[in-house]
């Protein structure tokens, strides 16, 4: 009884705080100066019409490096925590995974290449329309999850995936250092020629960096999903 009264009081106080924050929200008429400079500079100096990818990879490149490190740490710690111990018995026979049937199997055979192609499309189109490295990598990992659901006996080659992921991370950092050497700062993509706005080969090294990010995230999330199986 006392707990309920207490929780109602806490929720009431939180509601008061939130209404004050929401009430003080003023609709901005124009962008703030920093955002305006990003929006105008990105198509001219970086030749990418997708401002978000430009900000993620160039103007805030160190944050992307931090995200890559965080994802790698997550995958490593999950691998450590979910490793099966030697003394544990295997689950009993009646609890084994059931076969989902033939329709799902055929459906997987149709949809899996399509999902992979769609993921590759989203990765590669990072600088033109909505997309980018992280998003495309998540779609690729979703395709792998479909594979794991439809045929539960697949064994993913986790060592190969880990090697691919680490190589992609190393290449990403190397590209960043090339940015320092050849152009402005870390991860500056201007050291490759910038084509015209909206073309496929344009925006300097941003497609390369997006591709590396996508491969890395895709391999990582696949390994993470695989660890969660019994």
């Amino acid at each position: 009884m006392m707990q309920r009264v207490l929780s109602v009081i806490v929720i009431g106080l939180l509601a008061v705080v939130f209404t004050r924050i929401v009430g003080a929200y003023v609709q901005l008429d124009a962008l703030r100066p920093l955002a305006a400079s990003y929006v105008t500079l990105s198509p001219e100096s970086l030749t990418t019409p997708n401002v978000i990818t430009g900000i993620l990879i160039t103007y805030r490149g160190l944050d992307t490096l931090g995200e890559v490190a965080v994802l790698f740490m997550v995958a490593a710690s999950l691998g450590l925590l979910l490793k099966p111990l030697e003394g544990q018995p295997k689950p009993p026979k009646a609890f084994q995974r059931s076969d989902p049937g033939e329709i799902v199997h055929s459906g997987k055979q149709v949809m899996f290449p399509m999902i992979l192609t769609f993921g590759a499309y989203v990765i590669v189109n990072g600088h033109l329309s909505a997309g980018g490295g992280f998003q495309g990598g998540a779609i690729v990992a979703a395709g792998v999850m479909l594979l794991l659901i439809a045929t539960p006996e697949t064994r993913l080659n986790t060592t190969l995936l880990s090697i691919v992921e680490s190589t992609a991370g190393i290449l990403f950092v190397l590209l960043g250092i090339l940015g320092i050497v050849l152009a402005g700062g870390f991860l500056d993509p201007r050291f490759l020629p910038a084509g015209e706005l909206g073309g496929f080969i344009s925006a300097g090294a941003i497609p390369l960096i997006s591709a590396l990010l996508g491969i890395k995230v895709g391999a990582e999330l696949s390994v993470v999903i695989d660890k969660f199986r019994t």
Partner: peptide, 19 residues
Amino acid sequence: GLLSFLSVLAVARFIDRGL
């Protein structure tokens, strides 16, 4: 579209006998 398909499949597998 991708998301809805995969989420329904995953939940269907989950309520059956665990993941």
